[in-house]
C-alpha cells in the first residue's frame, strides 16, 4: 500500500504519480489522505490500480478514469467520474451535481444520494445510486444504465436517447420523450448484474424501467411542442 498525504504532496504531483503507473505496475494499492475537498483528485488514471481517497473531494474527482478503481470514503463534489471510460468509482457518501456526466464506460457507484443532472449525456457508463437522484438526471443520455434505488427528481431522462433508466422509488416527473417501458428478462439480467457488482441490497423485480419514446430523434412538426 502506497500512501500519499495531500497535506504534504501537491495535487499535480499526486496525479502525475498515479497517472504514471503502468499497466503491469506492482504498486496496485494507493491511499490518499487529507483530500480536504480538493478538486481533480485522481483524474486521468489509466492502469488497473486501486485508489482509496480518505475523506471528501471537490470538483471532478476521478474524471476521465480508465481501468482504475477509485474509492472515496466521504462525499464527492460536482462532476465526479466525468467522462469515465472504464474502471470503477465508488462514493461512500453523496455526490453533487452531474455525477458520471458524459461517461463512456465503467461503473460509478454512489452509496448516498446524487444531486441534479446525474448521468447527464451518459454514453455507456453504468451508474448505480443507492439513494435518490435530483432533477434532470440522465438528460440526453445516450447509452448505458442508470440504476436508482431511491427516488428520482423532476424531468428524469429528458430528451433521452438509448440509455436505460431503472428506478425503484418514485419519479417526480418524466422529461420530454421519456416513458415507462416494460421490464423484460434481458433487463432483469442487466439489473441483477449491476446490483450484484455494486453491492446493492435490492431486487431487480422492485424496479421500473424508463426509456426513450424515440419521438425527438428527428424533427417532426407534430412534436414541435416537445422540443
Amino acid at each position: 500500500m502506497q500512501t500519499i498525504d495531500m497535506a504534504t504532496t501537491s495535487l499535480r504531483d499526486l496525479n502525475a504519480l498515479l497517472q504514471a503507473q503502468a499497466a503491469k505496475t506492482n504498486q496496485t494499492a494507493w491511499a490518499i489522505e487529507n483530500p480536504r475537498g480538493a478538486h481533480a483528485v485522481a483524474v486521468g488514471l489509466d492502469a488497473p490500480i486501486e485508489v482509496t481517497v480518505k475523506g471528501s473531494t471537490g470538483y471532478y474527482c476521478a474524471g476521465m478514469n480508465k481501468q482504475a478503481t477509485v474509492h472515496v470514503t466521504g462525499s464527492a463534489g460536482p462532476g465526479v467520474a466525468e467522462n469515465m471510460m472504464s474502471g470503477t468509482v465508488i462514493i461512500e457518501g453523496d455526490a453533487s451535481q452531474y455525477a458520471g456526466a458524459t461517461g463512456h464506460g465503467g461503473l460509478l457507484v454512489i452509496k448516498g444520494n446524487a444531486s441534479s443532472r446525474c448521468g447527464i449525456s451518459m454514453k455507456g457508463i453504468n451508474i448505480v445510486v443507492f439513494g435518490n437522484v435530483g432533477h434532470m438526471s440522465a438528460f440526453m443520455a445516450q447509452s448505458g444504465n442508470l440504476v436508482v434505488l431511491g427516488d428520482a427528481g423532476d424531468a428524469l431522462g429528458d430528451s433521452l436517447y438509448e440509455a436505460r433508466l431503472f428506478v425503484r422509488g418514485s419519479v417526480k416527473s418524466l422529461g420530454s420523450d421519456c416513458i415507462e417501458k416494460e421490464m423484460r428478462p434481458e433487463h432483469i439480467a442487466i439489473l441483477t448484474d449491476l446490483l450484484a457488482r455494486s453491492g446493492a441490497d435490492a431486487k431487480p423485480e422492485e424496479f421500473k424501467r424508463y426509456g426513450s419514446a424515440r419521438k425527438l430523434y428527428n424533427f417532426h412538426v407534430d412534436h414541435a411542442g416537445a422540443y
Binding site: 480536504r36 475537498g37 480538493a38 475523506g55 471528501s56 473531494t57 471537490g58 470538483y59 466521504g74 462525499s75 463534489g77 457518501g93 453523496d94
Partner: peptide, 17 residues
C-alpha cells in the same frame, strides 16, 4: 464547496448534505 469546511472542528463526523 466542501473545501470551505476542511478546518472546521469535528467536520469528519458532521452531517454533510
Amino acid at each position: 464547496e466542501y473545501r470551505a469546511f476542511a478546518k472546521l472542528p469535528g467536520i469528519d463526523d458532521a452531517r454533510i448534505w
